[in-house]
Amino acid sequence: QAPETKIVDKSRVACDGGEGALGHPRVWLQIPEDTGWVECPYCDCKYVLKGSKADAL
C-alpha cells in the first residue's frame, strides 16, 4: 500500500507510525523551507507543509 500523505500546519512534526504499539519509535521531523515536505525514515509517511510550494502540487 502507498505511504500516507499528511498536510500539516507546522514545519516540525512528530511521527510514531500512528498505530500505537504497532507503530515505530517517535521521531521529530523538520520540514525544509526549500522543499516544503519531509518523509518519515521509518514508515515513509510524507508530511507536506500547508501553503508551501509542495502543497500546491
Rank of each mutant, 00 (worst) to 15 (best):
S52L: 05
V13A: 00
T35Q: 09
G23A: 15
L29D: 01
A54F: 07
G18H: 13
V38I: 13
R26D: 05
L57G: 12
K53Y: 09
G20Y: 03
G51D: 07
A21T: 11
C40I: 06
C40W: 07
P32M: 04
A14E: 12
P3V: 11
Q30A: 07
K53E: 08
R26I: 10
G36F: 03
D34Y: 05
C45K: 15
A54W: 03
E19P: 14
S52Q: 03
D9G: 03
Q30S: 10
C15E: 00
V38L: 04
D44M: 15
I7Y: 13
G51Y: 09
K46P: 01
L29K: 01
P3N: 11
E33I: 12
D44C: 14
Q30G: 01
E19D: 10
K6R: 11
G18P: 13
C45F: 15
K10N: 12
A14R: 04
K53W: 08
C15G: 00
W28I: 04
L29Y: 02
K46T: 08
G51I: 01
H24D: 03
R26W: 07
D55N: 01
L22H: 10
E39P: 00
D9Y: 14
T35A: 05
W37R: 03
I31K: 01
L29W: 01
C43Q: 00
D9W: 02
V13G: 02
G36H: 02
C45D: 00
A54D: 06
D9F: 12
V13L: 08
S11D: 10
E19F: 09
A2H: 14
I31V: 02
G20C: 06
V27Q: 03
L49M: 07
D16Q: 09
K6S: 10
D9E: 13
R12T: 14
V48P: 06
D44A: 15
G18F: 08
C43A: 00
Y47C: 10
W28H: 03
K50M: 10
A14S: 10
V48N: 02
L57W: 12
A2E: 13
D16N: 05
W28S: 01
Y47K: 03
V8D: 07
G23R: 14
I31G: 02
V13H: 02
L22F: 11
P41D: 02
E33H: 10
G18E: 06
K53D: 09
S11R: 12
L22Y: 09
E19S: 10
L22M: 13
A2N: 12
L49E: 09
T5W: 15
G17T: 01
G51W: 02
W37Y: 13
G23L: 05
L57D: 10
V27D: 01
D16R: 03
L57P: 11
Q1N: 11
D16Y: 11
D55Y: 00
K46M: 08
G36Q: 05
E19V: 10
A54G: 08
L57I: 10
Y47G: 06
D16P: 03
A21D: 12
P41V: 04
K10L: 07
G51H: 04
Y47I: 07
H24S: 01
A56N: 14
T5F: 15
G51F: 03
L29T: 02
P32Y: 06
K53S: 11
Y42I: 14
K50G: 07
W37H: 00
V27K: 04
K10R: 10
C40K: 07
E19T: 08
A54T: 05
P41S: 05
C15N: 00
K46Q: 06
A54I: 08
